[in-house]
Design a protein around this nucleic acid. Structure first.
Lengths: 201, 201
DNA sequence: TAGTATAGTAAACGATCGTTTACTTGTCAA
DNA sequence: TTGACAAGTAAACGATCGTTTACTATACTA
């Protein structure tokens, strides 16, 4: 029972991630599952409900991954709690883990692609996409840089500009991985190490 | 007459760029133009014909822009013709021009977004998108770097990795501009100048 | 001035859309 | 053993899809 509901979610996600929400019909999803479309409505109240369940699932997955990586829940917290252990090695490891997460994770990868296809359709989807893989990580990285500078671990500079430069290779290599390129991880490592070598104090 | 055909193209492009090809109906396009959908078929033989005309137009626009910027037609030419004037200042100027082109041009900007929404639907669209704004520019930049190194204008290093690092901020800032961010040009300038400062020989 | 494309409308075509209904089956607790 | 519920099918619903047809008004051309 719950197995079917789960299969619907992952199958629909794969289709949405390739063609976009509107381009995938309920019949397409049912056909891919080998059931009739009427059966879908025993598990989800409509097509949009399937989509919303994916977003909900992603929020849980993201929260879990963040907790595991020591990222504070409140990313823009005004105090230092949660950041006191941030250092270059941790940032490096976290960044590489994020790359694998967005390119290899069975759920996060297609969901990211799906959101990229929905980003222009509404403010809400645009913000979600930006927060997850575009300006969100840049803001987060800039925050880390400011703290590294404050602790004297990093040379002085504009944190926002530097964060964009640090995160940019990650973002490009994710897009290249989508295009079938491989070897992204090693290029990313090179890029990170080069950056650390330049800015570590 | 030709004016209507042109208005159909730009109006449909704006809609495709926001919602994706499949999510936009012929009625939507006609409604946005204030005509009936039957009239559309006096100018294009079907919906796909409108889409194909956009791609054709983009190829012309791209060829024109490339010629203007001194980019050789044959980007992977085996000889040096067309590259003999490449230098850091030219690369810098070309890169900034490309950023403005993909974020501000009335045709290129929505077409890029539209292609990003179609990139996973077929190999052909994926290749087109990659060639235009992802791995294509990286390959092209790596080519330039190899020539700069050969001429002693650039320190030695892995051209492919360096090209990814050089182009990455451009790609990220385009995505951030899509999210409504501004000031991307100055961050890009900083990034380019920093790169040149590090690798100029 | 008569004839002919051109660019538009309104209506209809069959197909498919998301969703609902009526019905069948299997499972498990009372 | 019975009865309720869960999970499925098949068929139909009205709406909308992309496309075609028949027709009208306008403008140029012989």
């Amino acid at each position: 029972m719950n197995d079917t509901k789960e299969r619907i979610l992952t199958t629909a996600l794969a289709l949405f991630a390739r063609d976009g929400y509107e381009a995938v019909s309920v019949s397409d999803i049912a056909k891919a599952l080998g059931i009739t479309k009427g059966a879908l409505y025993k598990h989800y109240k409509n097509k949009r409900d399937i989509f919303d369940s994916m977003l909900l699932r992603m929020l849980e997955l993201d929260a879990g991954a963040a907790r595991q990586n020591g990222v504070p829940e409140q990313r823009l917290a005004e105090d230092d709690r949660g950041y006191d252990e941030v250092n270059w090695a941790g940032l490096r490891q976290f960044t590489l883990a994020q790359f694998r997460f967005w390119t290899e994770d069975a759920f996060a990868c297609p969901l990211r692609r799906m959101l990229s296809l929905e980003q222009y359709r509404s403010e809400e989807m645009g913000k979600l996409y930006q927060d997850m893989v575009v300006s969100g990580p840049v803001r987060y990285t800039a925050d880390i840089f400011r703290r590294l500078m404050a602790r004297g671990c990093m040379k002085r500079g504009d944190a926002d500009t530097l964060a964009a430069q640090f995160y940019a290779p990650m973002f490009l290599l994710i897009a290249m991985a989508d295009g079938g390129a491989d070897g992204g991880l090693s290029v990313l490592e090179d890029s990170i190490d080069s950056f650390i070598g330049r800015w570590q104090a």
